[in-house]
């Protein structure tokens, strides 16, 4: 499966953020999207997810059904600030979600899902309003995993989670990557290098894949930082 991006451009007023981006993402890999603050990572995700109008560009998904224009139904987007219905309990939230999407979901065992993200029985009956940022994030990641979209966009998803859940999530993403295209944005280089199969840098309004070929971890890391710093010998 491939996600093909052709000629993507997006500006805000006179400020160009993304310019003529051509890139192909493949399933079986987790892509770590790295870029300096304000460079346009979220804009890139919002463009793919059609949350904003783009100036130009096409997205194609090539899978067993052939090469077709990307449908927003194929995207699951975990945003950095989780938004959940505040006045539902976690259990109600998940029950409603499973009920609404019952045709798409095979496993309807609610306890399985709560175990997956380690939400205790006691917390399941709490209002989401009273959940911490990390707990809300868990719920957001959870429903995006349950709905099983072909492409999963993750905007800084793990930073607010505790270490145990972080490790579980990493394992989960690694299990999911076979049948999904996973693009993961983060500022934590170690996390990206630990979890991701490819590092893609958003720099100068373009996406650039950093080749790891023949480099050890230290040299690879130096190469990434040098590219981000715009050093010529990168």
């Amino acid at each position: 499966m491939q996600l093909e991006i052709i000629n993507l451009s997006k500006s805000f007023g006179t400020k160009e953020v993304l310019k003529n981006i051509d890139f192909t993402f493949e399933s079986g890999k987790i892509y770590g999207l790295i870029g300096r603050n304000g460079v346009g990572k979220t804009t890139f995700f919002n463009s793919l997810n059609e949350d904003i109008d783009i100036d130009s560009g096409y997205f194609y998904l090539e899978d067993e059904y052939g090469r077709n224009r990307l449908d927003i139904k194929d995207i699951g987007y975990v945003i950095s600030t989780p938004v959940v219905p505040e006045f539902l309990t976690a259990k109600e939230f998940l029950e409603f979600f499973l009920e609404i999407n019952k045709d798409k979901i095979i496993n309807k065992d609610i306890n399985y899902y709560f175990n997956l993200v380690k939400i205790s029985k006691e917390d399941q009956n709490k209002l989401l309003r009273d959940f911490s940022h990390g707990m809300k994030n868990k719920m957001q990641i959870l429903i995006n995993i349950i709905s099983n979209p072909k492409i999963i966009l993750l905007d800084e998803p793990l930073t607010s989670l505790d270490i145990v859940v972080q490790e579980d999530m990493k394992k989960l993403f690694k299990d999911l990557k076979k049948d999904h295209i996973i693009i993961f944005s983060t500022h934590i280089l170690e996390l990206a290098m630990d979890l991701c199969d490819e590092i893609v840098i958003l720099n100068h309004k373009k996406l650039e894949q950093i080749e790891k070929r023949n480099l050890n971890t230290k040299k690879y890391k130096d190469k990434i930082i040098a590219t981000l710093k715009d050093e010529k010998n990168a």
Binding site: F87, E92, E99
Partner: peptide, 18 residues
């Protein structure tokens, strides 16, 4: 019906919360 059910649960919880 589903949307009404969610709505009701939401208002109900909000009522209890307040």
């Amino acid at each position: 019906l589903m949307s009404l059910k969610i709505d009701q649960t939401y208002s109900l919880n909000a009522f209890i919360y307040n």
